[in-house]
């Protein structure tokens, strides 16, 4: 790896100062499972690495009133071990759990998954489907944005120079609200999504959907919130007609590419299938809640 400087600040303010003080490229380090691969391949040659894992508020999961607050650098293994989060958002934990191997899970964070800005990032669709926000710190103080506002294209984010994600705020589920995430890969483990789909639904006491978000991954330059697919669900139970409309809406939203993992036609078809299957799981989970 090329020469680089390293600092591990203890507070968010120190991290802001370190990033602002760097003359050249400074990169934030959470788990390093993307960043170190990119440094080694020579794709990136930063002057400074700012390690966020020593900042207490950036690691771990807290409950603050109506929110789960997830420290940006929290590794996947801590998220899957958090029983209340897993109960509230099994879909988020499913997305996180799909990232890499056990070893990768020991380090990989949601913030890194998001800010690496791959269209195929597995934890991002369910986090967006949960209407989570990200708290961002930078030279001009803190701001809070919807998670979907961060990725603007493959490898590109809306974060300004010196800005980084401190934490995610996920509103706790309402009664009979639940989610699910499914991805399709050609093998059973250790591959990148051909398509990913998160569905988050809220049902009324009779099982009719009253709110929904459907988010697709790996079928466009960024994650897609498919409003038409949500509209296909809202006001309905999950009958054959609703499923057919959901499938069609998901297919229509896709703007995929052809690569070694799948053709455009294949990805579009799979997006519809995954939307139906993820919706079925989310409805079943939501209905099982009092």
């Amino acid at each position: 790896m090329p020469r680089v400087s390293y600092t591990a600040p203890a507070t968010v303010d120190e991290a802001v100062k370190a990033l602002a003080g760097a003359a050249g490229l400074a990169k934030v380090l959470s788990g390093g499972t993307d960043l170190l691969v990119q440094l080694k391949s020579g794709r990136l040659a930063p002057e400074l690495i700012v390690d966020m894992k020593r900042i207490p508020e950036m690691i771990g999961i807290r409950e603050e009133g109506e929110f789960f607050v997830i420290g940006a650098a929290t590794p996947g293994v801590m998220l899957s071990a958090h029983e209340r989060l897993e109960h509230a958002f099994p879909g988020i934990v499913e997305g996180v759990d799909l990232i890499g191997s056990t070893q990768i899970q020991g380090r990989a964070s949601i913030a890194g998954n998001l800010c690496n800005a791959s269209p195929a990032a597995d934890s991002v669709p369910p986090v967006i489907a949960a209407r989570a926000t990200a708290v961002i710190a930078g030279p001009n103080g803190r701001r809070e944005v919807a998670v979907e506002a961060i990725v603007i294209g493959p490898g590109r984010t809306s974060l300004a120079k010196g800005e980084f994600v401190v934490e995610f705020k996920v509103p706790k589920p309402k009664p009979r609200q639940c989610d699910a995430y499914l991805r399709f890969i050609p093998r059973t483990e250790m591959d990148i999504a051909v398509v990913g789909c998160a569905v988050n639904v809220t049902l009324d006491a009779g099982g009719t959907c009253i709110d929904a978000r459907v988010v697709l991954g790996a079928v466009a330059p960024t994650q897609l919130i498919v409003d038409e697919a949500a509209q296909a669900l809202i006001g309905h139970k999950l009958d054959a007609d609703t499923l057919a409309k959901l499938d069609l809406a998901a297919q229509r939203a896709c703007k995929p590419i052809t690569d070694k993992r799948g053709t455009i036609e294949y990805r579009i078809k799979i997006a519809g299938v995954l939307a139906r299957r993820a919706a079925a799981i989310a409805f079943e989970r939501a209905a099982a809640r009092a």
Binding site: Y6, D51, P75, Q103, R107
Partner: peptide, 12 residues
């Protein structure tokens, strides 16, 4: 926790 030491910096 088991991790890949190739994707961890020594300073960490």
């Amino acid at each position: 926790k088991v991790v890949c030491s190739c994707l961890m910096l020594g300073v960490e």
